[in-house]
Amino acid sequence: MRKQKSLTEVRAFQQRLTSALSRRGFRVAGYGWVTQAAKKIGVSAVNLGNWHSGRRYPDPESIQILASGLGVDPNWLSEGFGEMETSSPTESQSDKKTKRFDSRC
């Protein structure tokens, strides 16, 4: 069973997630940003909204997906260790499908 994160840990994660989203050009305010960001990253909008608001904390697999989609180090995202950026973000599955479809037109 996974250890429950403290409120301090959850808030720190929220700040790191917001920083990573902002660096990738997502305006983390207003209506619709969660859906757009989730689609680009490759996670569900409900999960991203819950993680960003602090209602839930992502499991290790979700941390990997988030980090990959945002181009940040998973250790930095989950625990704050190391450098923020690793590389450019990877394409979500929907982006790959769209590109494949577009190339056939």
Rank of each mutant, 00 (worst) to 15 (best):
M1D: 08
K3S: 07
Q4Y: 05
K5A: 05
K5H: 14
S6E: 07
S6W: 05
L7D: 13
E9D: 06
E9R: 01
E9L: 02
E9Y: 02
V10I: 15
R11T: 10
R11I: 00
R11F: 00
F13I: 00
Q14H: 02
Q14A: 00
Q15T: 12
Q15Y: 03
Q15W: 02
Q15A: 15
R16E: 03
R16A: 05
T18H: 14
A20I: 00
A20N: 12
A20H: 12
L21D: 01
L21K: 02
R23I: 07
R23V: 07
R23E: 15
R23P: 01
G25R: 08
F26S: 11
R27D: 14
R27L: 14
G30K: 08
G30W: 01
Y31I: 00
G32A: 11
W33E: 09
W33K: 10
V34N: 09
T35D: 09
Q36A: 13
Q36V: 07
Q36P: 00
A37W: 09
A38G: 09
A38P: 08
K39W: 00
K39L: 12
K40T: 06
K40V: 07
K40N: 04
I41C: 05
S44H: 06
S44V: 11
A45R: 04
A45Q: 10
V46E: 01
N47L: 06
N47V: 01
L48V: 08
L48W: 02
